Amino acid sequence: MHTVWKGSISFGLVNIPVKLHTATENKDIKLRQLHKECNSPINYQKVCSVCEKEVKSEDIVKAYEYSKNKFVVLDDDELEKLRKENEEKAVEIIEFVKLEEIDPIYFERSYFMAPDTGGGKAYALLRKALGDSGKIGVAKITIRSKEQLAIVRVYGETLIMETIHFPDEVRSTEEVPNIPSEEKVTEKELDTALMLIEQLTAQFEPDKYQDDYRTALLELIEQKKNGELTVTVSEKETVIPSDMTDLMAALQASLDKTSTTKKKTTTRKRKTTAAEKKEA
């Protein structure tokens, strides 16, 4: 597993060197966009909205838009200094709470925690203490230049860290449109709804569920691939003269085109001069 963060986590005077590994993966099927005419991949360029020119990476700076079209430019060195000041700190568990006290809306991403060199015993101690107490630890951690609130809990034989949103990152329910006020429902309607819930109640078994759309899309891709209904990227056409005759023909055509253009320009100039003389 790839290590995404390396540091230490502590509770009280116990310090545990740990590594974080991403616990989940996104299995969305990524589709590329091709040019319909030649089946070549579409590339995207970074273009300045004013100059209308492509901008290179070294000519791009980071900035915060504090109001419409007004920015505070932030230097890379300043950002790097802030990142290091926060990222190099050990993660300290601030407090312990019960898992059920945290609403699922706060949860963001999960990471497996593995003990680093010399941290095995302290890791096992924290895992045992959390398991016996039925509590989870609340901590702060900086990952990829972003400070995160996180919880540490037991998952099987492993400690898992889950980043959670800060309260101001969760929108208020008052912002949700068209929420009906308390409606009167009949006792019969409620009894029927409760009966339906009871009939559909089961123990949660994750293995029962699958992404039907992804499965169907993979099957479609496989069918097209096996049926050779595929396309190949067109090579960029390069004109290379096969012999001197082709080269001379191309040169002559260029000369003829240039001569024709010059004749038209000269004719226009003569007509303009003649018209000017008449007016004079």
Results as ranks from 00 to 15, higher is better:
Ile143Trp: 01
Thr158Lys: 12
Val176Ser: 01
Asp168Ile: 08
Ser254Gln: 05
Ala193Tyr: 03
Pro104Ser: 09
Phe96Met: 14
Ala139Phe: 10
Ile136Pro: 04
Asp103Ala: 10
Gln45Asn: 08
Thr158Pro: 00
Lys6Ala: 13
His35Trp: 12
Phe71Glu: 00
Glu85Gly: 06
Ile94Cys: 06
Thr158Phe: 08
Leu82Ser: 13
Gln33Ala: 04
Thr3Tyr: 13
Ile42Val: 13
Gly119Leu: 04
Lys56Gln: 10
Thr267Trp: 02
Val72Gly: 10
Ile94Thr: 14
Ala249His: 11
Glu147Val: 08
Ala150His: 02
Phe112Leu: 10
Val72Leu: 13
Asn15Gly: 00
Gln33His: 07
Ile9Ala: 03
Thr266Cys: 05
Val176Glu: 04
Glu183His: 07
Lys188Cys: 02
Tyr111Asp: 02
Phe71Val: 11
Pro41Asp: 01
Leu217Arg: 07
Tyr66Gly: 04
Ser110Gly: 02
Phe107Ala: 04
Lys27Met: 08
Lys184Trp: 06
Phe107Arg: 14
Phe166Asp: 00
Gly134Ile: 12
Asn178Asp: 15
Asn26Ile: 09
Gly119Met: 03
Tyr213Asp: 05
Lys62Asp: 05
Asp132Glu: 14
Glu222Lys: 14
Leu31Ser: 12
Thr22Val: 08
Leu74Ala: 03
Val170His: 01
Leu218Thr: 11
Val176Gly: 05
Lys236Asp: 13
Ile179Asn: 05
Arg214Val: 11
Gly137Thr: 08
Val233Asn: 14
Ser254Ala: 08
Glu182Phe: 09
Glu37Met: 06
Ser67Ile: 11
Ala280Phe: 07
Val154Leu: 06
Val239Ile: 15
Glu174Thr: 13
Pro241Ser: 05
Lys184Ile: 09
Val4Glu: 11
Glu198Ala: 13
Glu228His: 14
Lys84Asp: 15
Lys98Met: 12
Lys135Gly: 02
Ile160Ala: 11
Glu52Met: 09
Glu237Asn: 07
Thr24Leu: 10
Leu159His: 04
Gly137Arg: 07
Glu54Arg: 06
Asp59Phe: 01
Arg171Met: 02
Leu255Gly: 00
Pro180Arg: 09
Gly120Tyr: 07
Gln45Thr: 05
Gly156Thr: 07
Thr142Val: 15
Pro180Cys: 11
Pro17Met: 04
Leu149Gln: 13
Phe204Cys: 03
Val50Gln: 11
Thr22Ser: 15
Arg171Leu: 04
Met113Ser: 00
Lys278Phe: 04
Phe11His: 03
Lys146Glu: 12
His21Asp: 00
Glu80Asp: 15
Thr192Asn: 07
Lys84Thr: 13
Tyr155Ala: 08
